[in-house]
C-alpha cells in the first residue's frame, strides 16, 4: 500500500518535522526554559544578569510574602468574574444569533461579533479608559440616575477584560448552538418544558463543552493580562504586572519566571477539573 511505503513515510516525516520542531523547541522548550529559570537568581546590581545558582528563593518569596498571595487571589477573582460575565452575556447573544436571527442578519451578527477583534487591543482598552473616565460618557449617562462611573479600578478592569474577550466566548457558543438541531428545542417544548426549563435542561448541557472551550480562552487570557489593568485598573495590579515589573523593570527574570509559573499551574488545575467533567471529550 502507498500509505506504508518508505517514500510516503519520509514525505510525511519531512512534512511534520517543522511544526513538531516548533512545538517541541519553541513551545514546550520555552516553557521548560521558563521553569528552569525560576530556580536561578540574578546578580545584585539589577542589570538582569542571571546567575545559575540553583535555589528555591523565588518560590519561597512567592509563598512567604503575603502580597503575592493577595495578587494571585485578585487575579483569580478577576478571571472568574470575567469568565462568568462573558458566559452570561454570550449565551443570549449566541442563542439569538444561532436560533432567532434570520440567516441574513446572522451573517451580519457574526461579522459584528468578530469586528472588535480587528481593532487593536490598546485602542479598545483606551476606549474604555475614555468611557469610564470621570468626564466620560458613562458618568454622563449614569449621574442623572444617581449613579456614577465605577472609575478606574477592579470593576473597570473586569468590564474591559470581559469586553475584550467576549468574542472568544460567543464564537464557540455560537458554533455549539449551530450544531444544536432546532428539533431538540421543539422536542423539549413538545414534552412539556417551558423555555426556561428547555434552556436549563437541554441548551445549557448541550452547550457545556462549547462554554468550557470559551472559558478556557477567557480565563487564561485574563490570567495572563497586564495591560488592561494598567490602563483602566487604577492603582491595582495583577499577576501579569508582577511578571512584567520583575522581568522588565527590575530585570529579575528568575523571579518573573516563578510568578509566571502561577498562572500555568492554575491553568493546569483548571484543565484537570474541566477534564473531569468530561467536557473536553465532547469538544
Amino acid at each position: 500500500m502507498a500509505a506504508s511505503s518508505p517514500g510516503y513515510r519520509k514525505r510525511l516525516a519531512s512534512l511534520l518535522a517543522p511544526p513538531m520542531l516548533w512545538l517541541g523547541v519553541a513551545y514546550l522548550g520555552a516553557l521548560a526554559a521558563l521553569f528552569l529559570t525560576s530556580f536561578w537568581t540574578v546578580n545584585a546590581f539589577g542589570t538582569g544578569e542571571i546567575e545559575q545558582v540553583w535555589n528555591l528563593d523565588n518560590y519561597r518569596a512567592l509563598f512567604t510574602i503575603s502580597v503575592y498571595r493577595t495578587i494571585t487571589l485578585r487575579t483569580l477573582a478577576i478571571a472568574i468574574g470575567v469568565t462568568v460575565i462573558d458566559a452570561l452575556l454570550a449565551l443570549p447573544i449566541a442563542l439569538y444569533m444561532a436560533k432567532v436571527a434570520s440567516p441574513r442578519a446572522r451573517k451580519w451578527l457574526v461579522i459584528g461579533v468578530l469586528m472588535p477583534l480587528w481593532a487593536s487591543y490598546l485602542v479598545k482598552a483606551y476606549a474604555w479608559r475614555g468611557l469610564l473616565s470621570d468626564a466620560g460618557p458613562v458618568a454622563w449617562l449614569l449621574r442623572p440616575l444617581g449613579l456614577d462611573t465605577p472609575g478606574y479600578g477592579l470593576t473597570a478592569t473586569v468590564i474591559t477584560l470581559a469586553y475584550l474577550w467576549l468574542p472568544y466566548m460567543i464564537l464557540p457558543m455560537y458554533a455549539g448552538l449551530e450544531r444544536l438541531p432546532d428539533s431538540l428545542l421543539d422536542a423539549s417544548a413538545d414534552l412539556g418544558a417551558r423555555p426556561w426549563l428547555t434552556l436549563r435542561r437541554v441548551v445549557v448541557p448541550v452547550l457545556w463543552p462549547a462554554a468550557v472551550a470559551g472559558s478556557i480562552f477567557t480565563f487564561s487570557l485574563t490570567l495572563g493580562d497586564y495591560i488592561a489593568v494598567k490602563i483602566v485598573g487604577g492603582a491595582n495590579q495583577m499577576l501579569g504586572n508582577v511578571v512584567y515589573d520583575n522581568s522588565g523593570v527590575a530585570g529579575n527574570l528568575p523571579f518573573a519566571a516563578a510568578v509566571a509559573a502561577i498562572p500555568v499551574v492554575i491553568m493546569v488545575v483548571y484543565l484537570a477539573l474541566v477534564r473531569r467533567t468530561g467536557a473536553l471529550e465532547n469538544l
Partner: peptide, 23 residues
C-alpha cells in the same frame, strides 16, 4: 497570548544567557 508571553520570556532568557557569557 500566554504562549507569546512565554516565547518572549524564552527569548529574553536566551539573551540573558549570552549576556552572562560576555560579561
Amino acid at each position: 497570548m500566554k504562549s507569546i508571553k512565554i516565547a518572549s520570556a524564552a527569548v529574553a532568557f536566551a539573551l540573558a544567557l549570552t549576556a552572562c557569557g560576555g560579561s
